[in-house]
Design a protein around this nucleic acid. Structure first.
Lengths: 353, 353
DNA sequence: CCGACGTGAGACACCGGTGTCAATGCTGCG
DNA sequence: CGCAGCATTGACACCGGTGTCTCACGTCGG
């Protein structure tokens, strides 16, 4: 009994559940030192099995759980994981959160959310302050912050664990989760060209998003497989927003030789394309096929429901959490399940005539 | 100088910024005890102005910020706020998060997200474990967990600060933020009846959501103002989901004397109504007016764009954070800005003939 | 001039864990 | 039988703050 005996009232509170057990209580009740209890908690191998069992019995009996704050203070590190994002799409954010929580369940870690502004001049110090203040265990970065090298460098400098979710490998394997946007684009290209479309349009996301380029690159590859190609005048830049999609589509549909199909960089913009088509008096998919990217809720809410590329955002989130927490099994297991896939609905059809 | 002098290497690290300053450093450099520094941090009045200034100068010079974990350990409380929700709508969740973060900015608190399952039999113990483990400062509950009395009682029992966001006052004023769904329903009723609709339909949310009843109640009030009423056969129960809205609408549209307008409990279901109308060969708003609730992104993405009731979710979030952190000014200032409001788009029109 | 009193500040223990190092007991070997 | 060597365990300091109590130092009234 290394620690001072508690006042009777304290012990009473513990018995009745009004007070949570601490490591001192467990040590006292098990008749060992708190350090040994600490060893059991941390799975140190140098504890005799019978001692371990005795301690574990007390832990179970009183439902003891170590205090993350005290533990963190001693470890100089908290049990919090930060999600740092700069993404206008709520669907993406929520799915990513759900995926991360899937991967963190039962780990004792919690998720702290931190939206930020990629364009801010104080981006790096802001993120740094956030991490250092809370002594975060690690952070997950999603596009487009994940594509910022200055942020990554700062993270390395301060020694913070991190995982970057991006459409290409932007970092060492341990820090990078690839979303294979290029493959998604390929599926879109194959699908449209396979239906017989030859003059097709593409609406990209913002230039600063790596995914904009990957989706386009894959798209062109897919078209090529069927002998089609993306004409320069059929490319318009959007901003991954509904309005930008609508405007970009209006431009494409105003061309003399207008495309018979449009691949929009995400579902939001694809919804904008549908509106533009309606305003131009074109029917979808009769006069114009439309394909999106993401397969978020909106894809099935609009009319006609969008053919789109499903991005496994939630699954990606789970893998990111696993990676951060050092879980490695299941990660390589069948990488297919976290590849983008084609979801055919009603917005695509062969071209007329 | 109460604390031991650090090794020269430590001091060097501090100077170069490689090590963050602690309260001991500040105390030593200011020539006071750490307790006095603590007093300055906590705005204790019993510090002489000149002493305070001296300490504040050192704090500013070294960019000292107290460690939330150490502080939390001593306070027996963390600087984390939990968002506990059970809401299938990502738009709602993200807007609420943004609002909370608005209110928390600069406070030194962080937001931890915690989705849960209202239907789970272990709901109360799960939430309790979450709070006690992290010693949360407080939590924000949103519908429908916010309407669970067992959860609220547990929170009171363990002495956790909390704010419940709900459509009616479910608790003492300090713990309750009212979203005035009834008023929103009223606006919808006035709008439809004002346009001349007399036979109108209503699709409610799930029974366990208080908002389902409030929106309906307000709706009936609004109809009554114009001498209209909600017939019993024109009410269908949905689940606040797209599919449920579609199914409920299909039932209403199959009535012999079908309604000329439908008020759906939220935008997701309203989108479902649009699909059902299309399948029934009805044009909106020509043959059928549709009005939703929330004014989330989807409302303007569908076609025709939805007339809907805008719920100021983000603003509500900000108020919730203010309330939790004890900010009271600005709270009562102009309550209008956080009332639901009518947004007229293209899905409503006077009935034919 | 003296004692009561209020104010500002420090000493010390404590919050609930972990790191370091020394002590203990047991085993195997010369 | 004596001792090196390993496996276990504990004592103690420490992580970076706060609560409690004490003390030194005026000030003021009698």
């Amino acid at each position: 009994m290394s620690s001072r005996t508690p006042k009777p009232s304290d012990d009473e509170a513990l018995q009745s559940g009004r007070r949570r057990a601490t490591i001192n209580d467990v040590a006292r009740l098990a008749g060992v030192s708190k350090k040994t209890v600490s060893r059991v908690i941390n799975r140190s191998p140098s504890v005799r099995p019978e001692t371990r069992e005795k301690i574990e019995a007390v832990i179970a009996q009183y439902g003891y759980a170590p205090d993350p704050q005290a533990r963190g203070l001693a470890f100089r590190r908290s049990f919090l994981i930060g999600l740092i994002y700069d993404n206008p799409n709520p669907q993406y954010v929520v799915n990513m959160q759900l995926g991360l929580l899937d991967g963190m369940r039962g780990s004792g870690f919690e998720l702290v959310v931190h939206p930020c502004d990629r364009g801010s001049t104080t981006l790096v110090p802001d993120i740094r302050a956030f991490i250092e203040r809370q002594k975060l265990f690690g952070v997950v970065l999603t596009p487009s912050v994940s594509e910022d090298e200055a942020v990554a460098e700062m993270l390395r400098e301060i020694g913070c664990e991190y995982v970057r979710v991006a459409s290409i490998a932007v970092d060492a394997e341990a820090h990078s989760i690839v979303t294979r946007d290029r493959h998604g684009g390929l599926l879109a290209g194959r699908h449209l060209a396979g239906l017989g479309h030859r003059r097709v349009g593409f609406i990209s996301g913002p230039d600063r998003f790596r995914s904009s380029h990957e989706r386009r690159g894959g798209f062109e590859d897919g078209l090529k497989e069927h002998g089609a190609a993306l004409a320069a005048d059929c490319v318009a830049e959007g901003a991954y927003t509904f309005e930008s999609g609508m405007e970009a589509a209006a431009r494409l549909l105003a061309l003399k030789d207008r495309p018979t199909a449009i691949f929009a960089g995400n579902d939001e913009m694809a919804a904008g394309v549908l509106h533009a088509a309606r305003q131009a008096g074109l029917s979808v998919p009769g006069d114009l096929s439309v394909i999106g990217f993401d397969d978020f809720q909106i894809a099935s809410r609009v009319w006609p429901a969008l053919t789109t590329i499903r991005a496994p955002t939630r699954e990606i989130g789970r893998v990111a959490a696993d990676r951060l927490l050092g879980v490695t099994e299941g990660d390589r297991r069948d990488p297919e399940w976290r590849m983008p896939s084609l979801v055919v609905r009603e917005s695509t059809a062969p071209p007329k005539g």
